[in-house]
Design a binder for these strands. Structure first.
Lengths: 140, 140
DNA sequence: ATATTTGCAAACGCTTTGCAAAATT
DNA sequence: AATTTTGCAAAGCGTTTGCAAATAT
């Protein structure tokens, strides 16, 4: 107990039906759902799951690097099954989040390293109007 | 809330002492303060200002493009007097936010445009350990 | 057998809001 | 005079947490 910090066991993730279901929902949903949206979809399979469990697992899975947490800067976090290098576009109008396949970080991470920063993750989020919303009248 | 910017009339910004003080604090503080921190500093000048007024004005000034709102993805928003193109680094350990002068968006914005997106803003936030925190033992 | 995980409810941190009074234009 | 802005308190949203029971290892 005097060596708490170093001797803590490594949180071995257990395979629960809730965890599996959450992961599965995300795997089959490319819309970058929020925790609430994941909850609603998981409930179709597990009607008694609690929202807290969804939040807990999304955080956990993200920390493990199995999924990706997206911070849009407006509203709730979004979750992405895709963990590979890519950016996002968040539409001001419809709130949809689009994947943007851009390879930009290799060079930039390198620059950060040169400046002495140890980069763990990064988020590149563009905001504006998506193609669909540009073709609508400004009022509706 | 979203359609404010397109449907509301010209919001002619009035020059109040609160607004001036908030802007001035930000101008003289390169630490990327939170709304709460701005509040505490403004209170030295205007002891009766309310936190709500600070929040309101920071949002307003950011919407006008006079200051920049930074979303770190963890904790409160930060505010930056610097509005020119640059990225940020948010330290996992000390929570400091560093400016990172990187020129990356011209090319990327161009790519987004080609894909039909109209980009209004973007945010690039790196996370990890800053130089100062790397030289400390993991426990303290 | 032990550690983790769950559901529930309550609390949390940050931010926004309704209102009447005050200040700016 | 008209409109915006303020301070206050209350509510809001998204998220986290303490707990005892249930479950996975």
């Amino acid at each position: 107990m005097e060596h708490d910090k170093i001797s803590k066991p490594q949180h071995s993730l257990r395979v629960t039906k809730q965890r599996k279901a959450i992961f599965a929902v995300l795997q089959g949903d490319t819309s970058h759902p929020t925790a609430e949206e994941v909850y609603l979809r998981v409930r179709e399979q597990l009607p008694h799951i609690s929202l807290a469990t969804v939040y807990r697992n999304l955080k956990l899975l993200a920390r493990q690097g199995l999924i990706r947490e997206i911070t849009t800067g407006d509203g709730p976090h979004r979750y992405d099954f895709q963990t590979h290098e890519h950016a996002h576009f968040h539409c001001d109008r419809c709130n949809r989040v689009y994947d943007v396949e851009l390879d930009f970080s290799t060079r930039l991470r390198h620059e950060l390293l040169r400046r002495g920063f140890r980069v763990r993750t990064h988020d590149l989020v563009f905001r504006g109007l998506c193609p669909a919303c540009q073709s609508l009248s400004p009022s509706d």
